[in-house]
Amino acid sequence: MKRLLRRLGIYLLAIWAAVTVNFFLPRLAPGNPADAVFFRLAQHGAVSAATRKALEAEFGVDTTDPLWLQYLHYLNNLLHGNLGVSITYFPANVSDVIAQNIGWTLALLTMSVVISFTLGTLIGVFMAWKRGSALDTTLSSVMTFLYSILYPWLALVAVYFLGFKLGWFPFSDGYDSSTTTMGWNLDFILSAAQHAVLPALTLVVSTVAGWMLTMRNSMITTLSEDYILMARAKGLTSRRVMFAYAARNALLPSVTGFAIAIGAVVGGQLLVEIVFSYPGIGFALYQAIQNQDYALADGILLLVIIVTVVMNLIVDLLYTVLDPRTRLERTA
């Protein structure tokens, strides 16, 4: 419990640091970003005085407030979910844009991570169990190859062959907006699922190898432990030895590996969204950058950091559940 509280403190600190950097960066940037944004906004039509004021506050220009007051304003705005106005989706607020996109991202991310981790881990368990067999050696080389492939490259290949050439799956957008409407109806869900196939496939194929190799190695180490020998000596079924004794222990390094890989996983997700024009925050970020939409880009980056931190927290909690040694010692 104490360990968890300490971790929680570290995570809060990380978020605070990210928020603070986010506050200072535009103020350190040369030139006047507020002017640039104001100019772009003006192209969309009239800009109210209030918007102008908000912009100036955001970038800390043309204001007589001292820095600390600006900082407090900024924190206050953040706490109220007030992230400014998006240029790209003008006049929508950044928070509204994010709210619209985050669902897509989380759905795709969760789906691909769960599939990839489960599949990779299971294959790794079997490979280690049948270590040295034809299955193990073949899979090892295939997976090492897959492991070295980059997401975007694989995504492009998938778009080209499965989407463009064969036309099996759609390769852009999250659903077909011409024939379905968003909501809890079957047409929409089917369309969304169909659109998710290629991005999810890309993410799964390019990450499954990593989980598999991690699990295989950690499983091989675990299999040489004395408690595996004892489990076999007890005459337990191989299934029980393999899962309850070996895999369950070998999973622990995999979970730690997962925590380390979270940054890469989230990064891959953003890239894949861009390649597939998937309506998540990755794609929105891409558009924000193209349109010099500081407010939106800022908001999304903050969100990405928060998502990463929350995932870390989940992994931490999971580890505590999986490994009794990290829980507080029970007293006699």
Partner: peptide, 13 residues
Amino acid sequence: FQSAMNSLNPIMP
């Protein structure tokens, strides 16, 4: 076994 520390599964009661 020699070492009960190592011959008991560490994550099973």
